[in-house]
């Protein structure tokens, strides 16, 4: 299906669903607007920065991610269960969805293209060290790599290690330091 065909099919689908009273075009605009402006990795960064600062929050986040972030009221739902996995000097975590494109939208927004690409989906499981290397991330041989396969029921996010340089940083600096790729686990913060 070419792009023009797909665009026509999408237009036809929208018209038919509107005719049936199942969707409202203005509401679709609102959903797109929400994902373009209010749902993104800045939300995940707030959670990570707080977990770095607040040991009690960190514990509850690692224990039950969904409950721990409930009070933020992030939009972009679809996450029944959020599991946050913590990087340590001994363990590096990385997230994938091998079957499709499951991703913690509310915290990270929509996934980057490479996350949905068949190459990433299959290779990160088979040869994580090699793939992370291609992202520019060298994981020491003695450090374990854990690959977490997302699903419609469980979405994962990585809690990166805080770089030492941020120990006394202010909130804005902390938030700025937390990258999307670090929360997927294909980057480490330095």
């Amino acid at each position: 299906m070419g792009d023009t065909d797909a665009a026509l099919r999408a237009e036809a689908l929208e018209r038919l669903l509107v005719e049936k009273g199942l969707i409202d075009p203005a509401h679709l605009d609102g959903i797109i607007e929400m994902f373009n402006t209010r749902v993104g990795p800045m939300n995940g960064a707030r959670v990570v920065a707080r977990a770095w600062r607040d040991p009690v929050f960190r514990q509850s986040l690692l224990h039950d991610g969904s409950s721990a972030i409930a009070s933020y009221g992030f939009e972009g739902g679809q996450v029944d269960k959020l599991v946050v996995v913590e990087n340590t000097p001994d363990v590096h975590n990385v997230v994938v969805c091998t079957l499709c494109s499951c991703y913690p939208w509310a915290l990270l927004g929509l996934p980057p293209k490479w996350y949905k690409d068949p190459a990433y989906r299959s290779r990160i499981v088979r040869e994580p060290r090699v793939v992370l290397r291609e992202f520019g991330l060298a994981i020491a041989p003695q450090r374990e790599i854990r690959v977490w396969d997302s699903s419609a029921e469980i979405r994962y996010m990585v809690l990166p290690m805080m770089p030492d340089r941020l120990r006394d940083a202010d909130d804005a600096t902390l938030l700025d330091a937390v990258s999307r790729d670090a929360m997927i686990g294909v980057q480490e913060l330095t």
Binding site: E11, K113, R180
Partner: peptide, 26 residues
């Protein structure tokens, strides 16, 4: 990166419409 290292996912407007339709129907 827009959205502070997030990305606008839609390369064409129809992609956003289709994504929004799935969400709205759900």
């Amino acid at each position: 990166p827009p959205l502070r290292n997030g990305e606008l996912d839609f390369e064409a407007p129809w992609q956003g419409r289709v994504f929004a339709m799935a969400n709205a129907l759900c």
